[in-house]
Simulated scan of single mutants.
Amino acid sequence: MSGPPPAVAAVRVAVRADLARVAAGAPGGLVLVACSGGADSLALAAATAFEARAAGLRAGAVTVDHGLQAGSAAVAAEAAAACRGLGLDPVVVTRVAVGRAGGPEGAARDARYAALDAQARALGAVAVLLAHTLDDQAETVLLGLARGSGARSLAGMPAERGLLRRPLLGVARATVRAACADEGLTAWEDPANADRHLARARVRHDVLPLLEQALGPGVAAALARTARSLRDDADALDALAAAADVFTDDPGGGSSAAVADLLAPPAALRRRLLRRAALAAGAPAGALTAAHVDALDALLLRWRGQGAVHLPGGAEARRSCGRLVLTRTPDQGTATDS
């Protein structure tokens, strides 16, 4: 008897390996597929439905309706129906309100992840599977490079973080979409994927094809390999920074550290300490860039009596009495970047 088409097999193999790791830590647990109704997430849903039972796991799905396009509720309902047709249970549709902080892409992502986390906890899920592919990872690396956000941003998306898992990061988008077609599934195409007003769409349709044309095939795979390597390095440096953290909580909120203590570690660790402190003070990770960390570093290395450094999310930092002090000012709203 012949096996499944090659694309279907490739997606199933990737999902099988990931579910085996989930099952090792939580046998019999519930895994949820985040399914938008797009080709990538439908292919992931189909593979998860096929592989979960053999892994000793239960499999369901969550569809997030962002409400950003006319007819979004109908699209969400169709995605949920497709998941039920694949045998996933439970299947939940949740509507979110998308804010404006972090731009349209960032705000939608934040709302989606918050909804997935809430549903996972409500249902007692042990994992949430996301359908990001190798090509998505390459796009993320290029976007991080353009922002100048440092090694952590160039490390791309993690394969695992908390409940979130990305089993398809090593599988090309073309393979995943071929699997969706081979499974006979009808996919929805998000209009945002073709909207060149959005940075990711420009990278997908303009930048990566140009790089492939100029440098030859395999650019996306090379960027994904770079991300894996940089993630290992960044994880190691972040662990060292956490162990060497010299910031202490201050009464009334915020934190501070002696300038002399911050100047002692190598630059790679010092900058991570500054970033950790900025995040702890309320700066959103997606809005905190290398330029912000540079401004904090200048308070240590190029001190000329300058005023406070304003950070995203209403946080600010200033040098006072030989200490670097970070505070959050909730009434300020979104501060002007330095």
Rank of each mutant, 00 (worst) to 15 (best):
S2Q: 00
S2N: 01
P5W: 10
A10Q: 11
A14Q: 05
A14D: 04
R16P: 06
A20M: 01
A26V: 06
P27D: 03
G28M: 07
V31S: 11
G38D: 09
L42Y: 03
A43I: 03
A46W: 02
A49S: 06
E51Q: 09
A52K: 11
L57T: 13
A59N: 11
V64F: 03
D65W: 14
Q69A: 03
Q69K: 06
A76L: 05
E78I: 02
A79E: 14
A80H: 04
A81T: 10
G87W: 08
L88W: 06
D89Y: 10
P90L: 03
V91N: 00
V91Y: 04
G106K: 06
A107V: 08
A108Q: 04
D117M: 14
A118C: 12
R121M: 02
A122Q: 11
G124Y: 11
G124V: 08
V126S: 14
A127P: 03
V128E: 03
H132I: 13
A138H: 12
T140R: 02
L142G: 15
A146L: 15
R147E: 13
R147M: 13
S149L: 12
G156V: 12
L169T: 13
L169R: 12
A174I: 07
T175S: 00
V176E: 00
V176K: 05
V176H: 02
A178G: 13
L185K: 14
T186L: 01
A187I: 01
P191L: 01
A194S: 14
A194V: 15
D195K: 09
L198T: 09
D206K: 15
L208K: 09
L211I: 09
E212P: 08
E212S: 13
R225L: 13
R225P: 08
T226D: 13
A227Q: 04
A234C: 12
L237N: 08
D245P: 06
T248L: 14
D250P: 05
G254D: 00
S255K: 07
V259M: 15
P265C: 07
R270A: 10
R271Y: 09
A280D: 13
G282I: 13
G286E: 05
A290L: 12
D294G: 03
A298S: 08
L300P: 04
R302H: 15
R302D: 12
G305Q: 06
Q306Y: 00
G313A: 05
G313Q: 00
G314A: 09
A317S: 15
A317Q: 01
R318Y: 00
R318E: 10
C321Y: 15
G322A: 02
G322E: 01
V325Q: 01
L326S: 00
Q332P: 14
G333L: 07
G333R: 03
A335H: 02
S338D: 15
